Computed example of a mutant assay.
Amino acid sequence: MEKQIAFDNIITLKPEPLTQYSFAPFGDVIEAEDREFFMINNGSTRRYHKLATTQVDEGSGVIINIFEATPLSYPLSVKMMERHPKGSQAFMPLLGNDYLVLVAPVGDEPDLLSIRAFYAKGTQGVNYHRSVWHHPVLALTPNDKFLVVDREGAGNNCDEFFFSEQTRVILAPDL
Rank of each mutant, 00 (worst) to 15 (best):
E2K: 07
K3P: 00
I5M: 02
F7V: 03
D8T: 11
T12I: 15
P17A: 11
L18H: 03
T19K: 06
Y21I: 15
F23P: 02
A24M: 13
A24L: 14
F26W: 03
F26A: 04
I30E: 04
E36D: 13
N41P: 00
N41V: 01
N42G: 15
G43L: 06
G43A: 07
G43H: 08
S44N: 11
T45W: 03
R47I: 13
R47A: 13
H49Q: 14
H49W: 09
L51C: 07
A52S: 15
T53D: 14
T54A: 12
G59P: 02
S60H: 12
G61K: 06
G61V: 07
G61Y: 01
V62T: 14
V62K: 02
I64G: 07
I66H: 03
F67Y: 15
A69W: 03
S73H: 10
P75L: 06
L76V: 02
K79A: 10
M80N: 12
R83A: 04
H84V: 10
H84T: 13
K86I: 13
G87A: 08
Q89Y: 03
Q89D: 09
Q89F: 04
Q89W: 04
P93M: 13
L94V: 14
G96W: 13
G96M: 10
N97R: 11
L100P: 00
V101C: 12
L102K: 06
L102N: 06
V106N: 01
G107D: 04
G107N: 01
E109Y: 07
E109L: 00
D111I: 05
L112W: 03
S114H: 06
I115P: 00
I115S: 02
F118L: 01
Y119T: 10
Q124G: 04
Q124M: 05
Q124H: 11
G125V: 09
G125Y: 08
V126A: 05
N127Q: 01
Y128L: 14
R130N: 08
R130E: 05
S131Q: 11
V132M: 00
V132P: 02
W133Y: 01
H134G: 07
L138P: 09
A139F: 10
L140W: 09
N143E: 12
N143Y: 08
D144G: 11
K145A: 08
L147Y: 10
V148F: 06
D150L: 07
G153I: 12
G155I: 09
N157P: 02
N157W: 06
C158F: 02
F161P: 03
F163K: 02
F163G: 01
Q166Y: 07
Q166E: 14
I170R: 01
I170M: 12
D174V: 14
L175T: 09
